[in-house]
Design a binder for these strands. Structure first.
Lengths: 208, 208
DNA sequence: GCTTAACGGAGTAGTCCGCTCCGGAATATC
DNA sequence: GATATTCCGGAGCGGACTACTCCGTTAAGC
C-alpha cells in the first residue's frame, strides 16, 4: 500500500486534502473558496486541481465519504447490545463529524448514481437502528427515523464566525438535552405530521 | 401618526423593508445581497439606501429590533402564571422569529451602545424567567440560561436551500423534542461545564 | 545527469455585490 | 394649470472575490 518518495507524498496529500475540505466546508459552508481548502491542507492550487477537476467533483467525493461514514456509524450502532446506547452512539458519531452539514449540499451539486445508492443504504441501516429502538420501547413512539436524521442535520449546521472549540462543547450539551427528549415516553405529543421521505429526498433533486 | 400621500407610502415602505430584510437575512444569511432585500420588499435600491445609509446600518437596526422582540417575549413569558409554560412560550416565540439567527452577526458589524444596552436587558429578563423555572423545579437543574439562549440559536440557524414551509414544521417537531429534554429531572447529566458569559459575549467583540 | 511526475502559486477571465446617480412620476404649492 | 418638491426605480460603476489555468521550479527515479 504505502509507497516511497514522491508517490507516498501524493498519497499523504490526498488525505490531507480530504480532511481539509471536510473541515472547511463543514464549518464555513459550501461556498467557501477552494483556495481556503488548499491553504488549510498546506498545498498549492495545482495539487488540488490535479486530483479533482472541479469544485463540484470534490464536493461529490466528500459527500459520498460522509454518507459512507454514516452507514458505518449506523452499523456500529446496531452492533451495540443495548438499543438505546446504539442509537445514541449513531447520533453522536454523525453529529461529531457533521455528516448532516454535507447532506444539504442538495441542489448545489449533481447527485451521482453512487451517491443515491449509498444514501439509500444509509437510510435503510438507520431505519433498522431506529426500528429496534422502537420495538424495545426505549425511543418515544411518535418520532420517526427521518426526524432523527433532521435532528442530526440541525445540530450539524455550521456556526457562524471562526471555528471555536467552545462551539463543540456547547453543541454536545445541547445534543444531550435533545437526546433526553427522545427517550420514551414523550412528555408531550410531537406537533404536526412526521416529515415525508419525498420531501426529504426532494431537496437533492429528483431520484434517478 | 398616519399621514397621507407620498409620506404614507414612505412609512409603509419602511415596514416592508424591515420585514423583507428580516425574512431574507434570517433565511439566507447576512451575506445575502442587498438587492435581494429590495426585490423582496418590492422596492428599488434607491428607496432602500435613502433609509439606511449602508448595509451595516440596516443590519444594526434589524438586530436591535430582534433583541427588543426577545425582551418582549421574555416579559410575556414572565406574565404567564405557570413557570414552565412561560419558558416554553419564550423559547417558541424567539425561535419563531429567528431572533437567534441574528445574534451571530457577531463580529460582522459594529455593535452600537444601544445594542449592548438592549442585549443586557434581554439577558437579564431571560435570567429571571429561567430562575423562576429553576426555583419551582420544572426545569432540569443542570441547565443554564445561556444553554437556553444557545439552544434557541441552534434552532434559528438558517437551513440551506430555498425557503420551504416543510422546514418550519420540522423545526417545530425537533424543538418539541428538545423542550421535553429540558424538563426536570434530566435523565442524564449534561456533559462539560456550562458555557460562560464571557465566551458568549466575546463573539460580538469587546464590551463597551 | 537526464527525464519526468508532482509541486506551488501568481495570473486570468468572469461574476457578483455594495453603493451611486439620475431621469421620471407623484404630490404639494401657488 | 404651471412650477417646485419629494420620492421612486433601477441601470451602471468600481472594486472585491473566485474557480480554474499555466508555467517555472523541485526533486525522485533511473
Amino acid at each position: 500500500m504505502s509507497r516511497r518518495g514522491r508517490q507516498a507524498e501524493a498519497a499523504r496529500n490526498d488525505l490531507r486534502l480530504l480532511r481539509a475540505a471536510h473541515e472547511v466546508f463543514t464549518t464555513q459552508g459550501f461556498d467557501a473558496p477552494v483556495s481556503a481548502i488548499a491553504k488549510q491542507a498546506g498545498l498549492g492550487m495545482g495539487s488540488l486541481y490535479r486530483r479533482y477537476r472541479t469544485k463540484e467533483a470534490l464536493l461529490q467525493r466528500l459527500c459520498l465519504i460522509a454518507m459512507e461514514r454514516a452507514v458505518a456509524a449506523a452499523q456500529e450502532g446496531l452492533a451495540e447490545a443495548d438499543p438505546w446506547d446504539g442509537l445514541v452512539l449513531y447520533v453522536r458519531t454523525c453529529v461529531e463529524f457533521r455528516s448532516g452539514a454535507l447532506a444539504p449540499i442538495a441542489g448545489t451539486i449533481e447527485v451521482t448514481a453512487e451517491m443515491w445508492r449509498v444514501a439509500r443504504l444509509a437510510e435503510e441501516t438507520a431505519d433498522r437502528l431506529v426500528a429496534r429502538a422502537h420495538e424495545t420501547g426505549v425511543l418515544r413512539s411518535d418520532v420517526t427515523a427521518l426526524d432523527i436524521s433532521l435532528l442530526m442535520e440541525q445540530f450539524s449546521r455550521p456556526a457562524p464566525g471562526p471555528p471555536d472549540d467552545g462551539h463543540r462543547k456547547v453543541r454536545d450539551r445541547l445534543l444531550a438535552i435533545a437526546l433526553d427528549g427522545l427517550r420514551a415516553p414523550g412528555a408531550t405529543e410531537l406537533p404536526g405530521d412526521p416529515p415525508s421521505v419525498e420531501w426529504y429526498e426532494g431537496r437533492w433533486g429528483s431520484a434517478p
